[in-house]
């Protein structure tokens, strides 16, 4: 009868495994809940002193400056850790309204922020903290001698734009519309960094991206300013989220971004004051 005993044992183990798997799946959505209180003094949300992990969903264009600010935050508040999720503002907004566990959302446009505030997922009113201006990114040395937005419509030139669904694409369309230009790109990229990459890899001759992206790319692309970009400034805003697992630390992070120190970091990256 040892055989059948072994069989029931195997069965039990398998069942336990299945239950564990199910449990794992069930709690993955609230996993940052656990990690947020994993700091040394986890008095969590009620305590004003920030601790634990603060999860920040931020627009892709904020990558460099927010990473700098995140390190600064961790230095100022020992025991904290800032976890970033950089991506297209629309994707981030969609995942927040779908229940992604995040503490802070920083969007690259008013429209994407509205998705979150309309969904009643924001706590309080979003704060504007920066503005970003479009710029043309060309190949190093500008071999095609692009000097204006109109030059991008030259035949034979391979231009990439962001898709209209993402803020940089919407802004580019606005600038083109303001100057009554028809531009047929070779591709509508899914976010600003993909558009920039196409120029960095020399696959496209030019892209309409943000000033900050041109700056972040260093010498791999050359920036060309164009006056129409003033018509299509993007307003960046940041908000604490309603279901923030770590509200105390999140609040402190928002304060850092809007502080004089935070503004300095953003200005250095090429952002304009709000």
């Amino acid at each position: 009868m040892t055989r059948s005993a072994r069989r029931t044992r195997t069965l039990r183990t398998a069942a336990a495994g299945a239950v564990a798997l199910l449990a794992l799946g069930a709690c993955s959505s609230s996993s940052s809940d656990g990690s947020s209180s994993s700091g040394p003094d986890s008095s969590a949300s009620s305590s004003p002193r920030p601790s634990g992990t603060v999860t920040v969903f931020a627009a892709a264009s904020l990558k460099e400056s927010f990473t700098t600010l995140g390190k600064e935050f961790e230095r100022q508040h020992p025991g904290t850790e800032v976890a970033f999720n950089f991506g297209g503002s629309d994707t981030l907004a969609a995942s927040i309204t779908a229940g992604a566990p995040a503490d802070v959302f920083a969007a690259a446009s008013a429209r994407t922020m509205a998705t979150v505030t309309d969904g009643k997922d924001a706590a309080g009113t979003p704060v504007a903290f920066a503005r970003n201006q479009l710029e043309i990114a060309t190949l190093p040395g500008n071999p095609d001698r692009i000097s204006s937005l109109k030059d991008l419509t030259k035949p034979g030139l391979k231009v990439v734009l962001c898709d209209k669904a993402v803020p940089c694409g919407a802004a580019a369309q606005k600038a083109l519309g303001a100057s009554h230009l028809e531009l047929t790109p070779v591709s509508y990229e899914q976010d600003v960094r993909s558009a920039l990459t196409k120029v960095e890899l020399k696959e496209a001759d030019a892209a309409v991206v943000y000033k900050t992206d041109v700056k972040a790319a260093g010498g791999r692309v050359q920036g060309v300013e164009f006056p129409e970009s003033a018509e299509a400034l993007n307003d960046y805003s940041i908000t604490l989220l309603k279901n923030a697992p770590n509200a105390a630390a999140a609040k402190a992070f928002v304060e850092l971004v809007t502080s004089a120190e935070g503004q300095q970091v953003l200005t250095r990256a090429g952002f304009l004051k709000p």
Partner: peptide, 16 residues
């Protein structure tokens, strides 16, 4: 890349 009618396949259209 992604351009309707030329390189925008269904999965790309779905994603965007």
């Amino acid at each position: 890349g992604n351009f309707p009618g030329r390189t925008q396949t269904m999965p790309l259209a779905v994603y965007l």
